[in-house]
Write a protein that binds this DNA or RNA. Structure first.
Lengths: 337, 337
DNA sequence: TTGTACGCGTTATCAA
DNA sequence: TTGATAACGCGTACAA
């Protein structure tokens, strides 16, 4: 068993109160002499206070939870780093939880946050999970919460997002500017708002340009590579699209595979626009034209908002929208009939 | 503030001991009637016991720590999933910590594990970090520890590994069987044992085949894509190698980029073998020949060993070596002079 | 079957 | 400047 404050007190021949004062740097009311002596003994015996016991009193744990839906998506791992860096700067540690897109796992972690008395929670969950049981769990959390990437009107929390409609519009509008009219779209799950919004941007861009919408050009997937590949194969064999807007880069990766299998050259036969700008982009040839999200900064911003809220320095609900940009690379070309 | 056991006791008009018995499923000594009534009230008020207070008594937190060096490397995220799945099956939750290859961050997390009284820790750290301060922190942990992927003779813990020497030998021997003799190698950092061992396999394979070793064919990197790319470019411009053994897939990804830039076709002009078999492999064309590690299973196995140790069912130190295999794909071809 | 009371390791309050 | 002690929320030995 580890040493306790009691042991240290005994060894130093002072009261536990004195030891407590020393290790908590209480400035006043302690002689330099005893302070040094206690400090010495603490170091010697390598005593570290038990955070659990401490937090029973102080009611804070200097810990924040970060719940993500899919640790295998590089988007989220980059997000994690932004959050961690800010948290550490504030001397907080991050309890990282991978919900793995499963409802029960996510709720489990949410409860854990409460039971472990995290000081606050950063939430990035798919909308599929946003059912009654989940919402209930969130409400019972009774601590500051900041949403990331995926907002939910039903939850009255602060959040950090991008304007997905605008981003979708921008992507598709670019394809239109290259004279494409037969533009397919491979979306994420129907229930996910991000997917819905980006799709909305796609529709608006077509509408503005006076290009009729063909519902068969729109296919759904689960935002992962494999299903993106399947969806692309289906779309490309059934319809003569000359361009595809993939609602995230993983899907775009799948499109590349499908195109290769079907003997379609990118960008000569098919233009592709992605979304996120993941690092693995570099593996593609040609490299992917995509909407760049400032992922790391999104994480940073969300963590800052949460920590301010925890420290009681902000109470109002704020919704921050980060800027995105279209990065043009080799996967898009002017349509030649 | 959340409800406490006291509140529930008051509402149900019983003692806290009774409530405690109910929520802990103490079979004996409680009437079905009161049990139901208490259960009802617990559900109604959505009471969850405070884990922190509980663990002060029980001395266990049903939490294990998992420390990884780089959350951006898909190898580790896959590992995480294996660990999580086993832990959850055992009703344990995983405290995931990303050391980000930094000493102070890693040590910080290690201390956190102790202070938060995790029941055990799974450790995957780079050897660079394995200095005095780190070792000290590990020793003071005073809880079960299982090492993953990277062993350290200096630490007397159980661990789950693969035979990196053998794996390296296998990879290079395959290249030799394809008549290659000018085989380059892009390693990880010199101080990392995994890298050292795989390199050792490379050397042994050459030696066995009677092929002289050219030290200039061996270049080091940091196991990441960018440096892999840089190293490959350097190697390929200076020397006429016909094949490259990349000590992990991220490096191999970099080799592909370098080859493309230099106008070398894979596998016609250059054969490439990687290590890990990451999913992003699918983005490459041709697909990568590589050593497959059972990453998910490594995570599972390590978690099982740790949990058994925690539950006191195993005390002996065990070193488990998992099987690897060479997966032949399109990036390797017979050398034609 | 149920309740009382103590202890877990710490911080905070008040008195000395 | 220092110390004794209550309190945090819970589990459990022991008593009723």
């Amino acid at each position: 068993m580890s040493l306790t404050i009691k042991d240290i007190a005994k060894i130093a021949d002072v009261s536990i109160a004195t030891v407590s004062r020393v290790i908590n740097n209480k400035a006043e009311g302690i002689s330099e002499e005893t302070r040094q002596r206690v400090l010495q003994i603490v170091k010697e015996h390598n005593y570290t206070p038990n955070r659990i016991a401490r937090s029973m009193i102080t009611k804070n744990t200097r810990t924040i939870g970060l719940i993500i839906p899919d640790i295998r998506n590089p988007f989220f791992t980059e997000l994690v780093r932004g959050v961690e860096d800010v948290a550490n700067r504030f001397q907080y540690t991050v309890f990282l939880c991978n919900g793995d897109k499963e409802v029960h796992k996510t709720i489990e972690y949410l409860n854990l946050m409460k039971e472990n008395s995290a000081d606050g929670v950063l939430l990035t969950v798919s909308d599929q999970i946003m059912g009654k049981p989940f919402q209930q769990a969130v409400e019972q959390l009774d601590m500051p919460v900041v949403l990331i990437d995926r907002g939910h009107q039903s939850l009255k929390f602060s959040g950090v997002y991008i304007d997905n409609v605008k981003a979708g519009y921008k992507a598709v509008n670019y394809l239109i500017s290259l004279s494409h009219t037969e533009i397919g779209c491979i979306a994420g799950p129907k229930e996910i708002k991000n997917s819905h919004d980006r799709l909305q941007g796609y529709l608006e861009a077509l509408k503005t340009a006076g290009i009729p919408v063909n519902p068969e050009y729109i296919v759904h997937s689960n935002f992962e590579m494999e299903e993106g590949y399947q969806a692309a194969k289906q779309l490309l064999t059934r319809h003569q699209v000359t361009a595809i807007f993939a609602l995230n880069d993983l899907i775009a990766f799948g499109v590349y595979q499908a195109a290769e299998e079907l003997g379609l050259r990118i960008p000569d036969d098919l233009s592709v626009v992605g979304f996120d700008d993941l690092e693995y982009n570099r593996l593609l040839s040609p490299k992917l034209t995509t909407i760049r999200q400032p992922i790391y900064e999104i994480g940073e911003t969300a963590a800052e908002i949460l920590l301010k809220q925890i420290q009681g320095r902000r109470r109002a609900r704020v919704e921050t929208y980060m800027e995105i940009e279209l990065v043009v690379r080799g996967s898009t070309a002017r349509f030649q009939k």
